[in-house]
Amino acid sequence: MVDLSVDCGGIRLANPVMPASGTFASELADIIELQRLGAFVTKTVTPGKRQGNPTPRVSEVPGGMLNSIGIPSKGVDAFIDETIPLYADYDVPLVVSISADTPDGFADICRRVSVPGVAAVEVNISCPNIEDDGRAFAMRPETTLAVMRKLRQATDLPLWAKLTPNTGEIPAVAQAAEEGGADALVVANTILAMSVDIRTRRASLGRVMGGLSGPAIKPIILRMAYQCVRAVQIPVIGCGGIMTAADALEYLIVGCRAVQVGTATFVHPGAMLTVIDGLEDYCRQNGIDRIADLTGTLSAEAHDASLEWEAIA
């Protein structure tokens, strides 16, 4: 029997595989055995009601997809009354993803979702901060630190900070999140991108720009996850382009404690379960008793070699 459990950012997970925010909902219960997941992560909820962006909201690109769903939200009150109870029947930790467009708004929604039944709060600080010209909080270390400090005061629950890959200084942002009180980092959200329909010369997305996700982004996000692992002490949760157990293993080997699977679920609704099975097989085949022992087992030479790059990048 392989022990798949991991301690991750203040909670214990039966296995290191969970959904990425926005790619999971209770509707999946009709299709896969949700009880097998390491955690549930809900779609980001905002303080008030929002409609979301115009359609088309998605577009496929080679090896992945663009999305500009926006954050259609029924508001935090409806979320607490209607969504949280949907998960009450499962013995799986519930992680609630939140966002807001000001630091105080963030702290306020964080306080409100800190209710029984919620195991941790994932803070989507990849969203625009209207007090910083609409730049995402996690674009800069200063704004990351400021919002994390406010969030830390707002709850006793574990706080997971979800970073954006669109910053040029991911290690510094990671350190700011840790200093501000994060219990774990989720690396990362989608990469800002666009595509054009050459027949109509229109942008493929109604909102023109959107987030790239899926296998196309995995090498980039894996690199960022590795940089974050080396920059902080808290656990890093890898999220980007995981389609198979092999992809998840790469994240664990570079030092992630757990992983989130997003876009893959749209292609194969059972993708998360396939990843869990594949992790267990890998451990068994390689004589690993506890999957936690696999975390950070990248060969030592790699660390030395990467230092040269860090001097440049």
Binding site: G10, D30, I31, L34, D91, V92, A120, D156
Partner: peptide, 19 residues
């Protein structure tokens, strides 16, 4: 930091897979 405990599993079986 410890999380608030989440509820125990319900004894009622979950809905069977549909699709």
């Amino acid at each position: 930091m410890q999380a608030t405990p989440h509820p125990l599993p319900s004894p009622t079986p979950l809905a069977p897979p549909r699709a």
